[in-house]
C-alpha cells in the first residue's frame, strides 16, 4: 500500500500558480508536458504495448488509492471513460483551505494529452473545476 499524503495536491497547485503568475501559461504548459513525458514514461510505454487496459489499471490504482468517487468503464469497446464524481485532490484542498489554482483541472487535460499523443492515443477531458468533477475519454488514434 503506497503512502498517501494529500497535502501534496496543494503544493502542486501552488507550483502551477507560481509558474503561471511569473512566467505565463505557456511555461506552465511546457512544464506539464515535460512532466508527462518524464514522470509517465513507463505509462506511455505500457499504453503503447498493452493499449487501454494499461491506462485502465493506472487510473484504477490511482483513484482507489486517493479514495476517489469514480467510475471507469469501456464505451463501444474502443473508448475508456473515466468519470470522477468528486475529485479527491480538489476535495482535499478545499477541506484544508489550500488554494486551488485556476488551471488545476486544465493541467489534467494537458498531461493526459501529452501521454496519449506519445503513445498513439487521443483523449478528451471535460471538467467542471468548481464542482470538482470531470469526464476523461481515451481511445486509439493520432500519430505515434
Amino acid at each position: 500500500m503506497a503512502n498517501v499524503h494529500k497535502d501534496f495536491h496543494g503544493c502542486f497547485s501552488f507550483g502551477l500558480r507560481f509558474l503561471t503568475a511569473n512566467y505565463g501559461p505557456e511555461e506552465t504548459e511546457a512544464y506539464l508536458r515535460r512532466t508527462a513525458r518524464n514522470v509517465y514514461a513507463p505509462l506511455i510505454e505500457a499504453l503503447r504495448m498493452r493499449g487501454l487496459p494499461a491506462l485502465q489499471d493506472h487510473w484504477n490504482n490511482i483513484m482507489t488509492l486517493e479514495g476517489a468517487d469514480f467510475d471507469l468503464h469501456f464505451e463501444n469497446d474502443d473508448t475508456l471513460v473515466l468519470t470522477i464524481h468528486k475529485c479527491p485532490a480538489i476535495s482535499h484542498m478545499r477541506e484544508f483551505k489550500y488554494d486551488v489554482c485556476e488551471g488545476f483541472c486544465e493541467s489534467t487535460r494537458i498531461v493526459n494529452e501529452e501521454i496519449c499523443a506519445l503513445a498513439g492515443y487521443v483523449t478528451e477531458t471535460e471538467y467542471d473545476q468548481a464542482a470538482g468533477r470531470c469526464v476523461q475519454r481515451f481511445r486509439k488514434g493520432g500519430a505515434e
Binding site: A2, N3, V4, H5, K6, D7, F8, H9, C11, F12, G15, L19, N22, Y23, E27, A30, Y31, R34, T35, N38, V39, I62, L65, E66, I84, C87, P88, A89, S107, T108, V111
Partner: peptide
Amino acid sequence: MISCTEFIMAYSELFAFIEERHG
C-alpha cells in the same frame, strides 16, 4: 490528475524546470 503518490517526481521536475529555464 497527478496523484499525490506521483507528486515527488513532478516536484523534482518542477525544480529542474525552473532552474534550467529561469535560473
